[in-house]
Design a protein around this nucleic acid. Sequence first.
DNA 1: TATTGTTATACTCTATAACTATA
DNA 2: TATAGTTATAGAGTATAACAATA
Lengths: 131, 131
Amino acid sequence: METLERSAASEAWALIAQLFTSQRTRFLAIASEFDLAPAQLGALKALDPEDPLPMRELAQALACDNSNVTGIVDRLEARGLVERRASTDDRRVKMLVVTEAGKDLRRRVKAQLLALLGDEDRKSTRLNSSH
Amino acid sequence: METLERSAASEAWALIAQLFTSQRTRFLAIASEFDLAPAQLGALKALDPEDPLPMRELAQALACDNSNVTGIVDRLEARGLVERRASTDDRRVKMLVVTEAGKDLRRRVKAQLLALLGDEDRKSTRLNSSH
DNA sequence: TATTGTTATACTCTATAACTATA
DNA sequence: TATAGTTATAGAGTATAACAATA
């Protein structure tokens, strides 16, 4: 029993570590390529380009404190990628809107992601390039 | 064609984001539970408890600069989880050894990971608890 | 000359606590 | 009283460049 559990834990450990590392590496590479700090890319991903989001909900999506979002959004706003907009319902709330420049950056990030996945796919199926 | 590619990109984007987020959340929860900064847990995971590793190789495993590893290892060493040891082959190199306390922490992290995975498994197969 | 690890510097992320303005 | 967002503060991660010791 103990042996089985240790084995399962080891496999799970290795799998999680590998998945996390590969995701993290890809994520960091894209962030760096577009000259965004990792948390900034995370925020840009978490925002809905068609539907403004309160600061507080972005904090939840990023699993961090509201106070962090202030700084992250400050920097995204300074680059013209997002805008704060007053909520009409609750004057305490600020809604986050992705600007046209932000939407364009999101599109380019997506394209780059697709290209990376394509590369990996071609690597893992190198003998089979006809489809 | 464009539509198909956009669709693939959207799916890939969503899948990557979801995988990354779930991994990240689990990773951060465990790091916090054991009072380790994320990079410190990453380093502890990357080290082999049975086989000392040069600083430089830890930097490669963490995909960061050598200079960062100095600080991360400083803090792990201050907590008695790892030790720097001079290499016998090359006097420039410092080998990283996981202490008994570090090995114990690794074991507890693994156990916690197994418990988390078990919880998730039970959640996703809630009607079927007999095997 | 090149490499390993450290130090110095500057920027970013992070949590906590105290604050303002709203509710 | 409670909540949304900001500010202040402190600790940690990160890259870059310059450095000492060693190869």
